[in-house]
Design a protein around this nucleic acid. Structure first.
Lengths: 228, 228
DNA sequence: ACCTGAACACCGTTCAAGT
DNA sequence: ACCTGAACACCGTTCAAGT
């Protein structure tokens, strides 16, 4: 009786793709991309490195699955009850925020083939572009532009986070921006005239607001596109 | 006399940062990112791995320098003698084409910190945005949006090239697109309704044209932006 | 000042052997 | 069917020793 009802100990739950991906995400979040190692992962799952290969074909698939799991979580379940524009903003911000909490997604999104994670975002963007009333032949272009912009910002944010972490780990966000702005202001006056000029705006700017402004720019472009 | 004028043999030119970066680019172009190894690089330069570290701090810097060298080569030397819109298109296409010939740049751009290569593109984009007559407070946003879009497409193209290379090396471009379109058409009809619908356009689409259409979309957005 | 190359401390992945 | 963990074939990076 007793043996029949006892719970198996947490550490001895059978290995599964889900548990592996879950542990990989944890590792990525806590120790970064470099910390995700088959040996570290195996230790966390109290097993050997080889065992993981029974459930996952290799590191690339593991990274892809981890990214997909996180991105899937940010996608809305049902249809939006707002304007398409607002739905697109919410969608974009969802990805943006996911990258902020899991910076490693930023790289992974950019390098994942046209497969799962990107496709999810593309699909949801496309639906809203459709709801926007864009002509069919233009929907592909519009959804792609939005997706590429989002992925581009994501990659950049991830790179910034990495640089921030690697070079000035214990410095605050504002201090980090101050340093970057100071570096811009120090650039060659003729070769980097424009960049120097906007250095001040870099200091003041808010990543999130700036990201949304870019989204709105594209939305405006979609609304005013020249028929062709 | 003879000894004085003889050329030193190519293989025995002294090591230099430039030669190292040049060899790294060659390696990246021919054997890909995975082929760039300090051992392979050392062999090509007929020296030991350790020697490289005298001129370069590590692999990250080397990749950054290689990317910067290529990107710098695509930037225009003087002011453009066309409309700002056209100059932006040329600029964007320059980066696009550079990524097509050197796919590894795609990743590298996305992961290079706000440093050199990105800054070059940002500067040139900014100047044209300025020439476009965008209000100062908006120039930063506009240039950033263009840059992020370009980098996003670049990363995606690089990922595609990698996937194409890894999975179907000896298949043509059109066949590759056909396969992707077929995969899209096979997606779940309710979960991926939009993506299935545009699968046909994926087959017909031209990356370059599509890329430019996205640029034009953002340019339209810049032209029609709501004052605020 | 610059180069050499063995050595260190890791990796991802495989695979015979176990259960 | 699934797990184990030693072993293989690599990496990037360091560093004493050379010139």
């Amino acid at each position: 009786m007793a043996t029949r009802t006892r719970r198996t100990e947490r550490r001895e739950e059978p290995l599964s793709r889900e548990r592996i991906v879950e542990a990989a995400i944890e590792l990525l979040d806590t120790v970064g991309e470099r910390g995700l190692t088959f040996r570290a992962l195996a230790e966390r799952l109290t097993t050997g490195p080889g065992a993981i290969y029974w459930h996952v074909t290799g590191k690339d698939e593991l990274l892809g699955a981890a990214t997909d799991a996180v991105v899937a979580g940010t996608m809305p379940a049902g249809p939006a009850d707002t304007t398409p524009q607002e739905a697109i903003r919410v969608l974009a911000l969802g990805v943006f925020d996911a990258i902020e909490t899991h910076p490693w997604i930023g790289n992974q999104l950019a390098r994942s083939p046209g497969k799962s994670p990107m496709l999810r975002v593309f699909e949801h963007l496309g639906r809203q572009v459709q709801a926007l009333g864009a002509p069919p032949a233009f929907q592909f272009t519009a959804a792609s532009a939005l997706l590429n912009y989002i992925v581009g910002v994501g990659g950049q944010n991830a790179a910034d986070a990495r640089a921030h972490q690697a070079r000035t780990p214990d410095t605050g966000r504002t201090e980090f921006l101050d340093n970057a702005a100071a570096a811009w202001a120090d650039l060659d006056p003729v070769e980097y005239a424009f960049t120097r000029g906007v250095a001040g705006q870099l200091r003041e700017h808010d990543d999130r607001t700036e990201f949304l402004a870019g989204i709105d720019l594209i939305l405006t472009g979609i609304a005013h596109r020249q028929p062709g």
